[in-house]
């Protein structure tokens, strides 16, 4: 916790970062002022888009001492309001997993090259971004910790596979290369508590380092203070668990 007599400053702005296939995409970067070196976090936005909540969350990580970068995974869909762009991506069935992984690898490399970042980078995501965070932790080398908040479709039946999501993230569990924090709600219909249990069993089977927390009386998206899904108690506790997890594995 910061002290009331401490100086604090922050820089937050949009930047361009490398993405999949060498594309340049835009991203929102927030970082504490000062030389650092700071640990860092890549934030993966949810299906509703690269929206205001994600800008707030990016600044929240910076307030807690992290250089935080939220790439716009919908960059290629064109520009407009976050909702209009996200609606276009929704109509197309989402963004391809391989493209997302390329974008996240680009963001990881961008952060690691910054002179004020200490090289230790976590990946965080909610909703579809939680799924992507898990996928990245398994398939993009270099992340030091991963946070999956209620990511659905980690456990997928063959019928649920799509051209954009051709393989279940669960299938890559053997390759998970960093500690994992998972936050879930008992009332969520995707992932259901049963699907989270399947995921946890796979993590145990492969001897992975993880901690899962299942909140009663919470459903999907319980951090979103702008939605009816917000649950104050689980949200406050969940954020505390996130920063404790990052402190343990990245320092700050």
């Amino acid at each position: 916790m910061y002290q009331t007599n401490a100086y604090e400053g922050m820089l937050a702005e949009t930047v361009s970062v490398p993405g999949a296939r060498g594309d340049m995409i835009n991203a929102y970067l927030a970082r504490p002022l000062g030389p650092g070196p700071f640990p860092a976090v890549v934030l993966i936005h949810h299906m509703p888009g690269w929206d205001e909540w994600y800008r707030e969350a990016t600044r929240k990580f910076a307030h807690h001492g992290y250089a935080a970068l939220s790439p716009n995974l919908y960059y290629r869909a064109g520009h407009g309001t976050p909702e209009d762009v996200a609606a276009q991506v929704r109509a197309a069935g989402g963004v391809p997993d391989e493209q997302v992984l390329g974008d996240l690898a680009g963001s990881l490399g961008y952060l690691r090259a910054l002179p004020y970042v200490n090289g230790r980078v976590a990946v965080f995501g909610t909703c579809s971004g939680g799924r992507h965070a898990y996928l990245a932790a398994c398939r993009v080398p270099g992340f030091a910790a991963a946070i999956d908040c209620w990511g659905g479709r980690v456990v997928m039946t063959p019928a649920e596979l799509t051209p954009q999501q051709p393989q279940a993230p669960l299938d890559f569990t053997a390759d998970l290369a960093c500690p994992l924090l998972g936050l879930f709600g008992e009332e969520d219909r995707g992932p259901t508590p049963e699907q989270v249990a399947v995921h946890e069993q796979a993590l145990k089977q492969h001897g992975k380092t993880y901690e899962f927390h299942m909140y009663p009386a919470a459903g999907h998206g319980f951090f979103y203070h702008d939605r009816p899904a917000y649950r104050q108690g689980p949200a406050v506790d969940g954020w505390a668990k996130i920063f404790a997890f990052l402190q343990k594995h990245l320092g700050a």
């Binding site: 869909a77 520009h79 407009g80 209009d84 609606a87 929704r90 109509a91 459903g219």
Partner: peptide, 18 residues
């Protein structure tokens, strides 16, 4: 104010996301 809804987007893709 729903977790899921039946959404309909009427668009003209040639004119962009807006």
């Amino acid at each position: 104010p729903l977790e899921h809804a039946l959404n309909i987007d009427f668009t003209d893709p040639a004119r962009g996301p807006g």
